[in-house]
Amino acid sequence: MKDRMIIGHIETINLPELGIEQLPARVDTGAQTSSLHVDNIKQINHKGKPAVEFDIHPEIHNVAKVIRCCAPIYDIRKVKSSNGMSEQRFVIKTKAQLGRYIWQIEITLTDRSDMTYLMLLGRQAIADNFYVDASQTFIASMKAE
């Protein structure tokens, strides 16, 4: 059996290829895919390939801080959100770091401005590496120190 880390229902995650560190994320085993709150999504061609540019506000309490990102489009999917509405979303694939694990995850880009956490970490991203203790928070962060 693979060595899995126990994580809480809230953890901080790094997305190094996007320049994001210590982003609080809600771990949601009920959601298949992960999602990230972004603004100003624009489809572009980057080095001759389809890509998206978007803004991330990595500090929820400091909306003045903005990171402009660019990533290749991995897919476009119809996703049903927690409120039951379906929408087409761009999907990117990027490295994630949580505790001692660094791995590739798929993230849908959407408006999560009405949510408490800017990122939702779905079961597709955590299935191979983690068990979730829903009664705990920031377990991986404490082990990393």
Score class of each variant (00 low, 15 high):
residue 91 V to C: 11
residue 91 V to H: 15
residue 130 F to L: 00
residue 112 R to L: 00
residue 82 S to G: 06
residue 93 K to S: 13
residue 94 T to M: 06
residue 115 M to L: 05
residue 83 N to D: 01
residue 116 T to A: 14
residue 94 T to E: 08
residue 79 V to I: 13
residue 108 T to H: 13
residue 100 R to M: 01
residue 103 W to C: 09
residue 96 A to T: 07
residue 87 E to W: 11
residue 123 R to V: 03
residue 130 F to G: 02
residue 103 W to F: 14
residue 77 R to G: 09
residue 90 F to P: 14
residue 129 N to D: 09
residue 92 I to V: 06
residue 80 K to Q: 15
residue 101 Y to K: 14
residue 132 V to W: 00
residue 100 R to G: 04
residue 110 T to M: 15
residue 144 A to P: 11
residue 121 L to R: 01
residue 77 R to H: 07
residue 74 Y to S: 09
residue 80 K to L: 05
residue 87 E to K: 11
residue 125 A to Y: 03
residue 81 S to A: 13
residue 77 R to N: 10
residue 131 Y to N: 10
residue 136 Q to G: 10
residue 108 T to N: 15
residue 102 I to V: 15
residue 111 D to F: 00
residue 71 A to G: 09
residue 91 V to N: 14
residue 132 V to C: 00
residue 97 Q to P: 06
residue 113 S to F: 09
residue 105 I to S: 12
residue 109 L to A: 15
residue 107 I to M: 04
residue 117 Y to E: 08
residue 115 M to T: 13
residue 108 T to L: 08
residue 101 Y to G: 13
residue 127 A to M: 05
residue 141 S to R: 10
residue 134 A to K: 06
residue 116 T to D: 14
residue 99 G to I: 01
residue 118 L to Y: 12
residue 137 T to H: 03
residue 116 T to W: 10
residue 130 F to H: 01
residue 110 T to R: 10
residue 73 I to H: 03
residue 85 M to G: 09
residue 100 R to H: 01
residue 90 F to V: 07
residue 82 S to K: 13
residue 126 I to L: 00
residue 108 T to A: 07
residue 83 N to E: 02
residue 99 G to T: 06
residue 116 T to E: 12
residue 76 I to K: 03
residue 117 Y to K: 08
residue 75 D to N: 14
residue 111 D to W: 00
residue 144 A to M: 13
residue 70 C to H: 06
residue 130 F to I: 00
residue 136 Q to A: 03
residue 133 D to K: 00
residue 96 A to E: 03
residue 122 G to N: 09
residue 112 R to H: 02
residue 86 S to Y: 10
residue 142 M to Y: 02
residue 120 L to N: 09
residue 128 D to F: 14
residue 79 V to D: 15
residue 72 P to N: 07
residue 97 Q to Y: 12
residue 115 M to F: 03
residue 114 D to L: 02
residue 136 Q to T: 12
residue 124 Q to E: 13
residue 107 I to F: 02
residue 79 V to Y: 08
residue 143 K to H: 06
residue 89 R to P: 11
residue 94 T to G: 11
residue 133 D to E: 02
residue 73 I to N: 04
residue 84 G to M: 01
residue 141 S to A: 14
residue 72 P to G: 10
residue 93 K to R: 08
residue 75 D to L: 04
residue 74 Y to G: 08
residue 136 Q to V: 04
residue 139 I to S: 05
residue 108 T to C: 10
residue 97 Q to R: 11
residue 120 L to Y: 06
residue 110 T to D: 13
residue 110 T to W: 12
residue 80 K to W: 09
residue 141 S to F: 11
residue 87 E to L: 12
residue 141 S to E: 07
residue 119 M to C: 03
residue 95 K to S: 14
residue 104 Q to H: 05
residue 100 R to F: 00
residue 89 R to F: 02
residue 75 D to I: 06
residue 107 I to T: 05
residue 74 Y to E: 06
residue 99 G to W: 01
residue 71 A to C: 04
residue 118 L to N: 07
residue 82 S to L: 11
residue 95 K to F: 02
residue 134 A to P: 13
residue 99 G to Y: 01
residue 106 E to Q: 14
residue 125 A to L: 01
residue 112 R to F: 00
residue 121 L to Q: 03
residue 77 R to K: 15
residue 130 F to R: 00
residue 112 R to N: 02
residue 88 Q to H: 14
residue 91 V to K: 07
residue 98 L to H: 04
residue 91 V to Q: 09
residue 110 T to F: 05
residue 139 I to H: 05
residue 91 V to L: 07
residue 138 F to S: 11
residue 123 R to C: 03
residue 120 L to M: 04
residue 91 V to S: 06
residue 135 S to W: 02
